[in-house]
Amino acid sequence: MSSTQHEWPLWEIFVRSRQGLGHKHVGSLHAADAEMAIQNARDVYTRRQEGVSIWVVPADAITASSPDEKDVLFDPANDKVYRHPTFYQLPDEVNNM
């Protein structure tokens, strides 16, 4: 890999597809600054009305959980089935619950 970095920083792009929905990750792109990242994201990710709002986040500002921690983080939820409504068996006569 080349030692000197010429390329613009990497930005992660999140797009709200319509009012009422959350922003969703759609990909990434390079831009010199945030303003340019938004302009580029408009051209790269919303050419067909895919969005009404864009978030751009410097890729190196994101901290992600590691796949190695998957078990530690998510296993504890496995045995708590009582958090789901289907865990509770109720008489058929009970409606609307």
Binding site: M1, S2, H30
Partner: peptide
């Protein structure tokens, strides 16, 4: 891989 590397 970096963008620079790929373009190179």
């Amino acid at each position: 891989v970096t963008r620079d590397q790929m373009l190179d």
